[in-house]
Write a protein that binds this DNA or RNA. Structure first.
Length: 436
RNA sequence: GUGGGCGUAGCUCAGUCGGUCAGAGCGCCGGAUUGUGGUUCCGGAGGUCGCCGGUUCGAUCCCGGUCGCCCACCCCA
């Protein structure tokens, strides 16, 4: 730990040494493969945006924890805390001429100024995938499937994680039905949101603190404790509004089941999402063990583009962070090992053989192979040890004997078998089939 | 933002009721091994014990502050 704090890493920020970057790239690669498989194309935007883009569009929650400041021109700016407002701004300018629906994804680095904890830093990377211009529930199901497959692609299955799905319109209908006043709705959503962790007692206390009456509080506490689909349907079978609000979720589930992803999703009345701009189906991905924070959160936001000044366009999307996902992969032991540093290790014994060693290395690199060699003269044992440590598949040995005979000794470092071949075959490119 | 715990070698950690207390394992470097590696054996480098201040003859140890990390709240991507 450096004693001079001025050179220390900022709290909540990460260095990525090769082993860490290998994991990050492993995750990014999986995300991009899945998104492309679903026909999404990648975009990006500036990491720094006008503060105003976030102030009223995302709800007050996110603004309190922005990484913001005034730039040298006196502009109030913020490091982007989320990607959706940027996407909304881009599309507000250009979507009119674009074929709908638009399927875009991005892997931005996002920033928030808040105390860091496990799975929650001041900086992270997040996969964002959105479908814009389609209001039907098939788009919601499609985006949920992308989220699920983005996690499955990394080797996690039904036993590892689940998507909890809800619909804000359904929650609203239920609140109306049990008589929660309009003015209490937002605060009530917050209580429902944390009900899973708080437990029934605290939930009821929270509702009463809002001034929500006994029968309504009782009904809500019950729903929160056991908000099963069946229970909901029984409880509200005489309410046309609630039953109608259940239809989109029904269809959403059917589509996912048809995709073979039914086991990855579950209705959960307590999922409402914090961001103010969600308007319909919302979902979150969690590890089944319940040890970590949400892996992913998303939903429908049909009004946002209008708010930013674009044409009215329905939209649905999600954000999936790299931090919690990385923790989960490490916990499950399915994080990748760092890639080997090279394929071929050229061993030259004495300065007299170095020029030939350089020619061989050059020829191999020209073929696209990754090649290393010692930068100073060392014994063969040392060099083979170095070769093994960097993960080389084979060693190409060029000593006095090889120079005299016009040959190269090619040693397979996994089997230990070695053959002596002609120098020409290595320089000419015939040697590349014997290695990895 | 609030409360609690923890900061000793690159990593994981031991240790001192205040006085040879600067330690282990792993890793790293070198040697055994100047034409054959991943094993083994031997040796070596590396630390102002997070930082600042206080108490004391003396502080890595006690006290205060501070910074950082972890956990729980708050909140949430």
């Amino acid at each position: 730990m450096p004693s001079d704090k001025s050179f220390a890493k900022l709290p909540g920020f990460r260095d990525f040494v090769p082993a860490d970057l290998a994991l990050r790239n492993h995750i990014f690669d999986a995300w991009r493969r899945v998104c492309r498989r679903y026909g999404f194309t990648e975009y990006d935007g500036p990491p720094l945006e006008p503060l105003g883009l976030y102030v009223e569009k995302s709800g007050p929650e996110i603004v309190e924890q922005l990484y913001n400041f005034a730039d040298k021109g006196g502009r109030e700016v913020a490091l982007r805390p989320e990607m959706t407002p940027t996407l909304a701004r881009i599309l507000a300018e250009r979507s009119r001429g674009m074929a709908k629906p638009i399927r875009w994804f991005s892997v931005p680095q996002l920033f928030r100024y808040e105390r860091s904890q496990r799975g929650r830093l001041r900086e992270h990377f997040q996969l964002n995938a959105d479908i814009v211009g389609e209001a039907g529930v098939a788009a919601d199901a499609e985006i949920t499937a992308v989220a699920i497959d983005a996690v499955r692609e990394l080797g996690l299955g039904e036993d590892d994680f689940v998507a909890r799905v809800n619909d804000r319109r359904l929650v609203t209908a239920v609140l109306d039905e049990i008589g929660v006043a309009q003015r209490h709705r937002a605060a009530c959503l917050a209580v429902i949101d944390k009900a899973g962790r708080a437990g029934p007692e605290k939930t009821r206390a929270g509702l009463e603190a809002l001034g929500i009456g006994g029968s309504a509080a009782h009904a809500l506490a019950e729903l929160v404790a056991d908000g099963s689909w069946r229970q909901l349907r029984d409880r509200f079978r005489s309410s046309g509004a609630v039953l109608a609000a259940m239809q989109p979720l029904e269809e959403h589930r059917e589509i996912l089941e048809a995709m073979g992803l039914g086991g990855y999703q579950r209705f959960d009345f307590t999922v409402v999402r914090g961001l103010a701009y969600y308007t319909g189906i919302v979902f979150e991905l969690f590890d089944r063990a319940g040890e970590l924070r949400a892996i992913c959160g998303g939903g429908r936001y049909d009004r946002l583009l209008e708010l930013v000044g674009g044409e009215p366009l329905p939209a649905v999307g999600f954000g999936m962070g790299d931090v919690v996902l990385g923790e989960l992969l490490k916990d499950r032991g399915i994080a990748p090992a760092a890639a080997p540093a090279c394929q071929d290790y050229v061993i030259w014994m004495e300065p007299a053989q170095r020029p030939l060693g350089m020619r061989v290395a050059r020829a191999l690199r020209r073929e696209g192979r990754s090649v290393l060699y010692g930068l100073r003269a060392q014994g063969m044992g040392k060099q083979l040890r170095s070769a093994a440590r960097v993960g080389a598949g084979r060693a190409l040995i060029i000593g006095p004997e090889e120079v005299t005979g016009g040959t190269v000794t090619v040693r397979d470092l996994e089997s230990g078998r070695q053959v002596t071949t002609s120098l020409e075959s290595v320089l000419g490119g015939a040697g590349h089939r014997t290695g990895r």
